[in-house]
Simulated scan of single mutants.
Amino acid sequence: MLPITAPTVVIDVRARREKLLLLGSSAALARVFGSLLVIPERVLEVSQTPGIGTCLCLRPDQRLLLVEPPGGADLVERLRAEAPDDVHMLEAGARFTELSIVGRDASALLNCGCSLDLRLSAFPVGSCASTRVLQVPVILLRRAIDHFDVFVERPLATHLIEWAASASDSLAVIASRGASTDSLTEGRTAS
């Protein structure tokens, strides 16, 4: 079934990697992990720590750390050892299936089921958001102009993949008729 390859978008499942939910205030997280990891302070902000991973700020008190192997695995043990009572870490690697949606119509595909404004001016490269696609809770990460990572809870992943396959077929029909899919992302408002 995967990868799903359409003329203007490719959908695939990324290899499983370690993910940690970091719970605590920005100040507490920076105090504990600041020397090891760049902690994003504002919601929707993303930070990158070379050799460690990518950290997404989902809420004022919640970050998702996408651990890069192999250096990140050592960090996880150090983080656990240094975490005080006001900071909590939860293993989230098995919780999410990580989809990669790449191509000219990646944002148009997502906007077929999501009301979030995914125009580049409203959701630039390096942005993240907790939102819904077809009422399925997801986390979106924009890695490039035409590349999104979508984190969906494992029990709901098959449903979302099947929907994405159908939506990509619809986009292919639109493209084959010479019509533009730009209207699918124009006029959206942030939600």
Rank of each mutant, 00 (worst) to 15 (best):
P155K: 05
H159V: 02
G53Y: 12
F123C: 10
F33Q: 02
I174A: 02
I139E: 14
P50Q: 07
R78P: 00
A94L: 12
R154Q: 14
G178T: 00
D86P: 13
L141Q: 05
R78M: 05
V10S: 10
H88Y: 09
F151H: 15
F96A: 02
L58V: 05
R14P: 01
S130N: 04
T181I: 02
T189S: 14
I145Q: 13
A94Y: 07
E162Y: 04
L20Y: 07
L21N: 15
R177E: 11
W163A: 09
L65H: 11
G24S: 04
C114H: 03
L141E: 10
R142E: 13
L99W: 01
I139V: 15
T49G: 12
I11D: 00
H159M: 03
S183Y: 13
G51N: 13
L29S: 03
T5D: 02
Q135G: 12
A172N: 04
T54Y: 06
S26D: 15
R142T: 07
G71A: 11
D86C: 08
P40Q: 00
G53V: 00
R119K: 06
P137Q: 03
A83P: 11
E82Y: 00
V152A: 14
V87H: 09
I4Y: 13
I145G: 05
V32R: 08
L116V: 05
R104Y: 01
S47M: 07
L171G: 04
A108Y: 00
L29N: 02
S26I: 08
V125P: 02
R63N: 14
E162V: 09
L79R: 06
E82P: 00
D74Q: 12
R119S: 13
S168D: 10
M1K: 09
I174K: 02
V136C: 13
C128G: 00
L141H: 15
I4M: 03
A73D: 14
G93L: 09
S127Q: 04
E91I: 00
V13I: 12
T8N: 15
D149F: 14
